[in-house]
């Protein structure tokens, strides 16, 4: 068949170059039994597929596909799968959040940890408390004052943003 054979007017108006290119791509895709990526060609390949599926049913292929899809759907809805999905949806986010908090806490404690460069901002030395004169009030005993001082130091730390 000659490549430059003229277009037959019975087949409609002469095709544009663009139509020729699209028709060739569709013809090649049908030959290769592949699905074109272009939406319009994909649509036309679907029309060709409708004709083929209607005229040439393949019961064996259809059965294999149906069994595979059915198995997948049932497996996805099985109780074990549902438990896995529940774990993924409910537990995983909390576990992830807890991990993030732990890591952040670790980083935070590093920055607050007393080091030679970063000395503790509040003295925990209780000598001054213990050496203070005792009063009459029951809560003025050295141990009570020590407790008060520790509580106060802890509260200060909390108010500065530490969570320890």
């Amino acid at each position: 068949m000659s490549a430059d054979m003229p277009w037959n007017p019975e087949d409609g108006p002469p095709p544009t170059d663009e139509e020729r290119a699209a028709a060739e791509a569709l013809g090649a895709a049908l030959d290769a039994r592949s699905v074109p990526s272009d939406p319009d060609l994909r649509d036309l390949a679907g029309v060709a597929g409708r004709i083929t599926a209607t005229a040439h049913p393949n019961a064996e292929r259809d059965r294999a596909t149906a069994v595979r899809v059915t198995d997948g759907v049932l497996a996805a809805s099985s109780p074990a799968s549902a438990r896995r999905q529940w774990l993924v949806r409910r537990v995983l986010p909390f576990a992830a959040a807890a991990s993030v908090l732990l890591v952040a806490g670790g980083l935070g404690s590093r920055s607050f940890a007393p080091t030679p460069r970063n000395p503790p901002s509040i003295s925990r030395n209780a000598d001054d408390v213990l050496r203070a004169p005792m009063g009459d009030h029951p809560t003025s005993s050295p141990t009570a004052r020590l407790d008060d001082a520790r509580l106060s130091a802890w509260r200060d730390l909390m108010l500065r943003g530490g969570t320890r």
């Binding site: 490549a3 087949d11 020729r20 028709a23 060739e24 569709l26 013809g27």
Partner: peptide, 10 residues
């Protein structure tokens, strides 16, 4: 031609 057949089928 094959090219023209492609157009007709398209």
């Amino acid at each position: 031609t094959v090219g023209n057949f492609d157009v007709i089928l398209h």
